[in-house]
Each structure stands twice: as structure tokens, then as C-alpha cells.
């Protein structure tokens, strides 16, 4: 039966070490079996990472470094000749009022948009987390703006915000508001862009926070219920602290991605009117492709890069602190 072969070990390979002896012998003489030696396979695995590093480096890091070099030159497409001018660009840019205006726009836009998105998104996440009938329908609806291209959503809004014949003005007319040229009016253009950005990105915050809410543990809440804690107390001392990591994560993503907003601005206002919606990212594009000042605009891009880099380093430190705080308290 099954177990008998053990005694004589005649049927199956494993019982006889003959294979082992002959295999080792072949290995010593460097036979072809060396090719399938899997002993060090884990050591060789790490080389699979190389293409994934090489391509982004080639298409991303190297151009960036080259661009940094540009920022130390006076390269302008309208003027022949390229010379090294050291940090002159950087000094000049700090005296350029258009640069500072762009910085201001960046801060205003990002601050307002992200602030609203965090609040609104958290609120929507809360709504979505309630157990009501048809919850799946609402949760799926939220996903849609996330997948539609931001440019396309911005264009949709451009259609709606038309001064005459635009449906937004029509609806607001019921509230007694006159027709406003939302995107071209200096006093409303940035605000309109904020609205568009909020529309596009709130679902992201909502989804992230919603997922965070779903993964909250039940036990603390049950304990609080037994203790008879009030709703507000529960929110302040249980929900909020436990959601902190996810909220910070959402903030990190939104802040960083918002600082480099480009497509929705370009598609709707091209940075106008009078550069009132030009943030730093768009500023570098315009200086390059409209004025040809590649070296100079690269300076702006580099500064933006440094801003984002510094901010993300700091935010990520905050985030990891909040996460370790969470896990250690468990």
C-alpha cells in the first residue's frame, strides 16, 4: 500500500539520494544544471527593478537636471546665443512682479480649493458612510468625476458658465442675479476656477475619507456607547483622532497636486484675464512658449519644484508621525 514503499524506498525519486549525489557532482564540473540553480534567485530578483527605475530617470530626472542647468543660463528663443549667467535668473525673478503675482494666485487658489475640498469631502464621506437604502448607488456616483479627465470636466463647466446662454447664469437668474461672465470677469475668474477644481477633486477626498471611516474599528464605539458618551464627544475624541492619518493623507495629496494645477486653468482661461488665474506652474509655461524665455521660466519651475518638495517632505513627516501614533496606541 501507500506506506510500504517507505521501507524499501524503491518507487519514488525522493527516497534515494542518488539524485543529490549526481547533481552535486554535475554542479562541481559546471554543467548546464547551473543555469537552473535557484538557490540565489532572491538575490537576483532585485535586478527586475532596474527598468522601472531607468525609464522614469531617463524621461524625468535627467530632463529636470538639464532644465536646472537651463535656469542658470540666459537662453531665450528669440535671442541667439546661450550663456551662463549664474544665479542672475533667480535674482531677477524675485524682483519680477509677475512672478509674485503668480505665487499669490497659486497660494490663493490652492488654499481656497483644498480647504473647501477637505471640508466638503469629509462631509460627503460622512453621508456616504450612513447605512441608507441605495447607498451603493450614491457611492458609485461619486466615482464618476474621479475617472473623467479633469480637462473634460473643466470644459463642461466652461460650457455651463457661458455669459449668455449658459445654464448657470440661467439658474442663478431665478435668485435675482444678473448674468455674470464668470470666467472672463476679473473679480470672478479665480473663484470660478476654484469651483471647477472643487467639483473635480472633492470626490477624491470623499472616497479616501469614506474608506477611512469604513475601516474604523467598532470596539471603541461600542465601549463609548456602554459608557453613555454623547455624540459630540465620540466624534471629537474617537472619530477625529482615528481619522487623522487618512485626513492628513488626503491633505497631502490634494495640496501637492493642487499646487501644480495646469490643465483646468489652461482649458478655461489660459491664465487670464490679466494673468489673474495664472499660477506659478502656468507662469513658467507662458514665459517659455509665449515669450520664449526658457532659462528664465525654468527658474520659476525650479522654484515651484522646491516649494512642492519641501512641503511634501514636511507633510509626509507629519503623516508618518500620525500613523505611528495610531499604531502604537493600539
Amino acid at each position: 500500500m501507500l506506506l510500504l514503499p517507505f521501507a524499501g524506498c524503491s518507487l519514488f525519486e525522493d527516497c534515494y539520494p542518488l539524485n543529490i549525489k549526481s547533481w552535486s557532482a554535475t554542479k562541481k564540473s559546471g554543467g548546464t544544471l547551473n543555469l537552473i540553480s535557484e538557490v540565489d534567485s532572491s538575490m537576483k530578483l532585485k535586478f527586475l527593478v532596474i527598468p522601472a527605475i531607468v525609464i522614469p530617470v531617463a524621461v524625468g530626472v535627467i530632463p529636470f537636471l538639464i532644465g536646472l542647468i537651463f535656469s542658470f543660463t540666459d537662453w531665450n528663443l528669440t535671442v541667439p546665443g546661450v550663456h551662463f549667467i549664474g544665479i542672475q535668473n533667480y535674482i531677477e525673478i524675485l524682483r519680477d512682479s509677475s512672478f509674485w503675482e503668480a505665487v499669490l494666485v497659486t497660494i490663493e487658489f490652492t488654499g481656497l480649493a483644498v480647504g473647501i475640498e477637505m471640508l466638503l469631502g469629509s462631509f460627503v464621506a460622512f453621508l456616504l458612510s450612513r447605512n441608507v437604502r441605495g447607498q451603493w448607488f450614491f457611492r458609485s456616483i461619486i466615482l464618476i468625476p474621479l475617472t473623467v479627465a479633469p480637462v473634460l470636466s473643466a470644459l463642461m463647466w466652461k460650457l455651463m458658465l457661458a455669459p449668455t446662454g449658459g445654464v448657470i447664469n440661467y439658474l442663478l437668474g431665478f435668485l435675482g442675479m444678473p448674468n455674470v461672465a464668470w470666467l472672463s470677469n476679473p473679480s470672478t475668474s479665480l473663484l470660478s476656477l476654484v469651483v471647477i477644481d472643487v467639483y473635480i477633486n472633492t470626490p477624491f477626498v470623499a472616497l479616501l475619507v469614506f474608506a477611512g471611516i469604513q475601516s474604523l474599528p467598532l470596539e471603541p464605539y461600542e465601549a463609548a456607547q456602554v459608557d453613555g458618551a454623547s455624540g459630540w464627544f465620540v466624534f471629537k475624541s474617537l472619530t477625529l483622532p482615528m481619522l487623522k492619518p487618512i485626513l492628513i493623507l488626503a491633505l497631502v495629496f490634494r495640496l501637492i497636486l493642487s499646487l501644480k494645477t495646469f490643465d483646468i486653468i489652461y482649458a478655461t482661461t489660459r491664465g487670464g484675464p490679466a494673468a489673474l488665474t495664472t499660477n506659478l506652474h502656468l507662469w513658467s509655461y507662458i514665459n517659455s512658449f509665449q515669450y520664449g524665455a526658457i532659462g528664465y521660466s525654468m527658474t520659476g519651475a525650479a522654484i515651484l519644484f522646491i516649494m512642492i518638495f519641501a512641503l511634501s517632505m514636511w507633510l509626509i513627516k507629519v503623516w508618518s508621525r500620525s500613523v505611528s501614533y495610531m499604531t502604537s496606541s493600539q
Binding site: P63, F64, A301
Partner: peptide, 20 residues
Amino acid sequence: TLLSFWFGPEMAILLPLYKL
């Protein structure tokens, strides 16, 4: 680090890349 490539402002790469 790879993920952080998403954080970079594209112009910082595109301006030189245009020339390249």
C-alpha cells in the same frame, strides 16, 4: 521615491524635454 514622481510640476521636466 517612484510615487513621488507624481508630485513634481510637469513644466520642470517639459521645458527641457521640449528641446530634447
